[in-house]
Design a protein around this nucleic acid. Sequence first.
DNA 1: GTCTATAAAGCGATAGAC
DNA 2: GTCTATCGCTTTATAGAC
Lengths: 169, 169
Amino acid sequence: MFRTHGYEGASLTLITAATGLGKGSLYHLFPGGKAQMARDVLTEIDRWFEREVFAPLRDSADAQAGIAHMFKATDAYFRSGRRVCLVGVFALGAARDEFTDAVQGYFERWREALAAALRRAGHARGAAAELAEDILAGIQGALVLARAANDPKVFSRALARLKRRATIP
Amino acid sequence: MFRTHGYEGASLTLITAATGLGKGSLYHLFPGGKAQMARDVLTEIDRWFEREVFAPLRDSADAQAGIAHMFKATDAYFRSGRRVCLVGVFALGAARDEFTDAVQGYFERWREALAAALRRAGHARGAAAELAEDILAGIQGALVLARAANDPKVFSRALARLKRRATIP
DNA sequence: GTCTATAAAGCGATAGAC
DNA sequence: GTCTATCGCTTTATAGAC
């Protein structure tokens, strides 16, 4: 609900309908209310990316394989462009100020892990840093364009091109 | 207000405070209420980009000059990364469905005008189409990253790299 | 642990005085 | 054309029964 409606747009009524839980249950599980729900969702997303994307980027013996894994996991996570990025949605809105650390940390750690992997894969230091930024921006922007055009293929195409740029022939 | 708070987040209270107009005045000027306000803002944005970006891309005798003008106007419009894109914000949220035409049209006409200019500037047909998509996604994504990091320079850097990719040496 | 009932505030929108 | 007052509804959040 936060992903598709934004923080302000995701009302408790929508959340109760989507979860099948009444407000009483929600406040029992999340005493901090809506803010805690969002915080817990952000934490869960962070854990998923840490495990499925950042760690493989950092730890893969074969850097190229780690990068390839990132593209595959990213495509799966965003449902090939049918899903948008909750962290990106929060970043653009007023919610960024309430969840600064989570929003900032997500992109920062992704960028750092990717830049290091690109370096290990053979890109020059400066080029790797720039390329990592381009790839992250390319992914976020492609999600915007895909949803604007209501055409997930925009995302798939962009992801394929970014993967090609990351690969050293 | 729509840009910084999203469609749902931009309440009439925020809008009255920002404009200095009471609700009565707002509904006198915009009988269609909040939806009309958003529609009129989208129309205004569309006019601005049509005049300052799309038309120069299409009509410039020197295609390279038209593209350079686009990057300059884009940097100015987004305040070098201190502003985000209202159309992008709407695209990611539920507002897209209420303002489909405006959101879709904005990116589509930008992409088409840019692809044509890139082709006239010397890029091969297929490469120009791909590059146009990359540049639009790069801009939207850089706005996300810049706001997430609370660092406008992320946007300026990305824009400079995109401009370099658009230029044929 | 989940529910219903309810509170207090805020929402978009309208009416009518001036 | 702008204001205040108000409507009806929704919002987040709480209380208390079960």
